[in-house]
Amino acid sequence: MIKKLRIFLALGLVVVGSLVLVPLQILSMKTRLWPETVILKIWHKMILKAIGLRVHVKGALARERPLLIAANHISWTDIMVLGSFVDVKFIAKADMEGWPLIGMLSRLQRTVFIERERKRTSGDQASEIAKRMAKGDVMVLFAEGSTGDGNLVLPFKSTLFGAASMAIAEGAADQVFIQPVAIVYTRVHGVPMGRRHRPMAAWIGDEDLMPHLKVLLAEGAVDAEVHFGDPVPFSKGSSRKETARLMEAKVREMTQAALADPRPSR
């Protein structure tokens, strides 16, 4: 009964809050009366509050520009976790655009949708990301190309770093900075999740969204950690494969450190 009540109240908060914030976000996008990310941060924080997800941060977003974030990917909640406290834009797979709520939220924060299976469109997509970085947008790349269970970092796909090469090739920048970021879900109700229970926070592959959302809403009180590594310059002579391996190693190192010694819940 308590869990059902929690789900009802959480969904009610999201619906009522969205009815207020969506028009304000559309207004900011059309008029630029205030920065677009102001409303987005409020929206992300509201969703995290409804879910019961607390965010702990180690390090900070790099100041260098153009900047590409290379992060691991565990769930759709990764977007809210990052978007709640930093000014970033996201790169997401194309089918997310049609998802209820998440698709709308993605469009309202100018997400770049990419079709990873269609190589013919990859050049245009990389060019769009490169242009956005050249304009000052910090783009978040979930470099595994899929979601994992939170226990391991999957191999980073070097092809997804094509936007950095494109930005340099098109003359938008002499170099692009790439910053590794680890997103780790560590505790539930203050207790370390452990390998067995950590997938509770994960949304993997073709798993249906609503059952996963109900579990997350019913449980609540989940802790997530975001660890920022040092940015690495990517220039004309840089190798995408070597950069992908380096970012993967750094994200894996930060992930394992967070899992081994999770921060206290508060």
Rank of each mutant, 00 (worst) to 15 (best):
T186I: 01
H227R: 07
V226F: 12
D124C: 05
D223Y: 01
R110D: 14
P155H: 08
H227A: 05
A167S: 11
E97W: 15
H189T: 02
G162Q: 15
A169W: 07
V232Q: 03
G145D: 01
D149L: 08
E117R: 10
K131D: 11
H189N: 08
I91F: 11
G123M: 12
L141F: 01
H189L: 01
A169E: 10
G220W: 14
A224P: 09
L141H: 07
M193P: 04
F177V: 02
I168F: 03
I102F: 13
M166R: 10
M166A: 13
L108N: 09
P233K: 08
P100S: 14
R132P: 07
A169Q: 11
L160S: 03
T111K: 08
A182R: 05
R187S: 13
G123F: 15
H197Y: 04
V138R: 05
T111F: 13
A173Q: 01
Q125L: 02
S165P: 01
G145T: 06
D137Y: 12
I178R: 09
M133C: 06
V188F: 00
K157M: 07
D137T: 09
P211L: 15
G205R: 15
P192G: 04
T147Y: 13
G145V: 03
Q125G: 06
F142Q: 06
A94I: 10
T147N: 14
R110G: 13
A92R: 05
A169H: 13
A173H: 03
A164N: 12
D95I: 00
H227E: 00
M133P: 06
K157R: 12
A164Q: 06
R198W: 05
W99K: 15
G150Q: 00
T147V: 15
E225A: 00
E128Y: 04
L141Y: 03
G190I: 00
V184E: 08
R107H: 09
E117F: 03
E219M: 10
V232W: 00
A172L: 14
A164D: 05
M193F: 07
G194L: 02
L213S: 13
P180N: 00
A164P: 11
A92F: 04
P231E: 02
E170T: 09
V181E: 01
I114L: 14
T186A: 15
R195L: 09
P155M: 02
G190P: 00
A130S: 10
V188S: 13
I183M: 11
V226Y: 04
Q109T: 11
K131G: 13
R196K: 09
P211S: 14
A94R: 15
W203D: 02
G194A: 03
A94F: 06
D124Y: 14
V191L: 12
K157N: 01
L217I: 14
M96K: 08
